[in-house]
């Protein structure tokens, strides 16, 4: 059963807090900006467009190459953060107020996942607006395509974040999640380097990471027709939608379980 009112108010709460806490927005946007300009800028000198990996004829620079990855990073961090705020709510009690309400667990999960989707898609859109400064050319249609993929990826990651949050009772686990979930997901995704150049074992792990497919979908929209793409767009979208559904169902079941 889906309660629209409950979903609406969960999203509205997150949005209100997002707008109210400007400092949170600035600090979460700082991370992708630092990576894009400091890491991307520095690495551009080492990895030149002529090195064979990055579509020689097309002249994609490293800073341009990681742009989809940086969009993905913005989404990964903000969607996970938004979802694991559930742990925060557990510790400070608001989760109890939500759990005793006559609302299905499915609606709670959907409401939380959509909250994460909204705030992380907004942040990704802000980073996306940087594309002209990186020498990337995108048509209006491509921009819309990127936005849609950002929304799908945000939802998938937010749903994964909820699954993770159901395993933890206190916020002490925060650094565990950062080090053992978020960072490996980011580095094993093709965000910073093409999947095909990875050693075999890492290549296999990368293929099991749903985030990889989100990054690849973004590359499809931004670098259409180049040879830096790893999978077909249909595969990418299929994996994103499929894993999203799986995560939502698992999260709802985890919420349903009583002690």
């Amino acid at each position: 059963m889906v309660e629209a009112n409950a979903i609406y108010v969960l999203v509205a709460r997150e949005f209100k807090k997002f707008v109210r806490e400007r400092s949170r927005l600035i600090s979460t946007l700082a991370r992708p900006l630092i990576w894009l300009f400091l890491v991307g800028g520095g690495m551009s000198r080492l990895v030149s467009p002529g090195m064979g990996v990055f579509s020689p004829g097309r002249g994609i620079s490293y800073i341009q190459f990681i742009f989809p990855g940086i969009l993905g990073m913005t989404i990964l961090f903000s969607a996970i953060f938004s979802s694991i705020s559930i742990i925060w709510d557990k510790e400070f009690g608001l989760m109890k107020e939500i759990l005793v309400a006559p609302v299905s667990r499915f609606s709670i999960v959907l409401g939380k996942a959509l909250s994460g989707t909204l705030v992380s898609a907004i942040q990704a859109a802000i980073i996306l607006a940087l594309f002209p400064f990186l020498g990337i050319k995108l048509s209006v249609l491509s921009v819309m395509e990127v936005v849609v993929i950002c929304i799908l990826l945000s939802f998938c990651i937010a749903a994964l974040g909820i699954v993770i949050a159901t395993f933890y009772e206190s916020f002490e686990s925060f650094s565990v999640i950062m080090n053992f979930v978020v960072m490996p997901m980011f580095f094993l995704s093709g965000a910073m380097y093409p999947v095909r150049t990875l050693p075999q074992i890492l290549k296999v792990i990368t293929r099991l990471n749903p985030f990889t497919y989100g990054i690849d979908a973004l590359k499809h929209a931004i670098f259409r027709g180049t040879d830096i793409l790893d999978f077909s767009l249909v595969t990418d979208l299929g994996v994103l939608l499929g894993t999203s559904a799986v995560f939502v169902v698992i999260a709802a079941l985890m919420f349903e379980r009583k002690k």
């Binding site: 709460r13 807090k17 400070f92 608001l94 989760m95 107020e97």
Partner: peptide
């Protein structure tokens, strides 16, 4: 026993949140 209010919302917003949850 322990507060379950959202401290970052106003009193009115907390009650509004509740009203929506309870339809």
């Amino acid at each position: 026993q322990d507060s379950t209010l959202d401290k970052d919302l106003t009193a009115y917003e907390n009650l509004m949140f509740h009203a929506y949850l309870y339809d």
